[in-house]
């Protein structure tokens, strides 16, 4: 499958998520509607997973090179985090934010279509390519979910409906996200040594990866100091903006001119 089929597949996924979400209303009183709703929501994600797999086959390389390709992965994986959180914590609201965020990413890809491009420059042809990008992807997905739940908790606090369960969820999502961020950073360094001759050259993308890592490192130390979790929800919500700069904002900064990471997208 190529990008010609993308709009139809993206639309199918969004329609599935929307139908599944709407079916949650009658699902409160009926098990059948509940199952049907989940069938739709999971179906939406499966459609995207199927698209990604067949796109991978058509490209003859992992679809992990351009920003558009990484957005496809986020759109596929973020709702999965929402579903898992509901399964594990019985917290239902996160999945709607996650599906909403995924829809935004699909929308960006629809408005700025990638060019179908098989070529992979020699430096990217490395066994480190997939682990480095996938670990970062999953890390970003978890931290996006933690930021979303951080904001939700902030709003709930304002409304006087504090939920310690919700705060603990955003904390654990951030913790797992940090673990993956650390692996991504070190995998990147080990790869850079093999491909470019040195593990760290303060390339703008590296610098921003370091800044975002420090931001979450700071979070963990604030937790160790037993900071009020209500304040930390703000911190988690805002930290994600640093990650966004690292993910794609860095391409627009004055420092980006000499980066080895300014791939298309």
């Amino acid at each position: 499958m190529t990008l010609v089929e993308f709009p139809a597949m993206a639309l199918a996924a969004v329609v599935c998520w929307a139908a599944g979400s709407l079916l949650q209303i009658p699902a409160k009183n009926s098990r059948i509607f509940g199952s049907l709703s989940w069938l739709f929501m999971l179906g939406g994600t499966l459609v995207l997973a199927w698209f990604l797999a067949s796109y991978w086959i058509a490209l003859e390389r992992p679809p992990l090179r351009t920003l558009g390709e990484t957005r496809l992965w986020y759109a596929t994986l973020i709702p999965v985090v929402g579903f898992l959180v509901e399964y594990r914590y019985k917290i239902g609201w996160l999945k709607y934010y996650c599906m909403g965020l995924a829809t935004v990413f699909l929308g960006i890809n629809y408005l700025h279509p990638d060019v179908f491009e098989k070529a992979l420059m020699p430096a990217l042809q490395s066994p480190w390519f997939v682990p480095h990008v996938v670990v970062y992807l999953v890390g970003y997905v978890l931290l996006a979910a933690s930021a979303v739940s951080g904001w939700h908790n902030v709003i709930q606090n304002f409304r006087g409906k504090r939920s310690e369960k919700g705060e603990s969820m955003s904390h654990y999502l951030a913790l797992l996200g940090f673990v993956l961020l650390t692996f991504g950073l070190i995998f990147g360094a080990l790869w850079a040594k093999e491909a470019w001759g040195h593990y760290w050259t303060w390339d703008p993308k590296e610098t921003w990866a370091f800044i975002s890592w420090l931001a979450y490192l700071g979070y963990l130390h604030l937790v160790a100091r037993k900071t009020d979790p209500r304040k930390l929800q703000w911190y988690l919500g805002l930290s994600f903006f640093v990650l966004l700069v690292c993910w794609f904002g860095v391409n627009y900064l004055p420092s980006a001119q000499n980066s080895v990471h300014t791939y298309s997208g």
Binding site: W202, P204, T207, W208, F210, I211, L214, A215, L217, G218, H221, L222, A224, R225, V250, L253, P254, S255, Q257, N258
Partner: peptide, 22 residues
């Protein structure tokens, strides 16, 4: 930890300048 945290913030801010300016 308070000093550790301040220095983490300090490192992050200096890196921020280095990550924005060419």
């Amino acid at each position: 930890i308070p000093l550790g945290l301040s220095l983490i913030v300090g490192l992050a801010l200096l890196s921020l300048v280095g990550g924005v300016l060419p």
